[in-house]
Amino acid sequence: MGATITAVSSNGAYSFTKPNRDSITLLTGLGVEGDVHCGVTVKHRSRVAQDPTQPNLRQVHLIHRELFEEVAGAGFDVASGQLGENVTTEGIDLLALSRGTLLHLGEDAVVEVTGLRNPCLQIDNFQDGLLKQVVGRDESGAVVRKAGVMGVVRRGGVVRPGDAITVEAPEGEHVPLERV
């Protein structure tokens, strides 16, 4: 079985979670139509406070459904959209992708992966202790972020649960994802 989209979510108001939708429309260079994080420049409050003119490298948040199963093993109940993602995937190792990877979502949309989501304390406000499940350290002490990836919309289109995901690796060396 190939990679697929299991859920899509958006919210026009600032809120940690995003309701699931029947479909979302990705807008080239902007993000998810009607979503609070849609725009050319940063929309995340902490980023706006630092510099509101920064380019928005976090137009679309994708998270792997497999993470929900992993945290369930530690006693947490998390469903699609509850961690603020726009697209929930299945069957693709998002965290292992190279920066610049193109994800073809459904028939038309293309999202370029820009980096890892940097989880914040709001996750613990959602479910106490969950932050430690999605951010940790590996054997060498390096920070490991598991709360999905961020991307920018290179080609717009409608995206729905059940749509296929095709991965197009960038040319050249693999560039590990860093937080954005």
Rank of each mutant, 00 (worst) to 15 (best):
G2R: 08
A3I: 08
A7E: 06
A13R: 13
A13W: 10
F16P: 13
I24P: 04
I24M: 01
T25W: 02
L27A: 09
L27K: 10
G29C: 00
H37D: 00
G39Y: 02
G39E: 01
V42C: 03
R45M: 01
V48P: 00
Q50D: 10
Q54V: 00
R58N: 05
Q59N: 10
H61R: 11
L62V: 11
R65D: 13
L67Y: 13
F68I: 05
E69N: 12
E70K: 08
A74S: 12
G75I: 09
F76P: 11
V78C: 05
V78E: 08
G81N: 02
Q82A: 09
E85Y: 09
E85S: 12
N86I: 10
A96D: 04
R99T: 03
T101P: 01
L103A: 11
L103E: 13
H104V: 15
E107H: 13
D124F: 12
L130W: 02
L131D: 00
Q133T: 01
V134Y: 05
G136P: 07
R137Y: 06
D138K: 11
V143G: 04
V144T: 15
V149M: 00
M150K: 03
V153L: 09
R155V: 07
R155I: 03
V158Y: 09
V158I: 14
V159Y: 02
R160D: 02
P161S: 00
G162E: 06
A164Q: 09
H174I: 13
E178K: 10
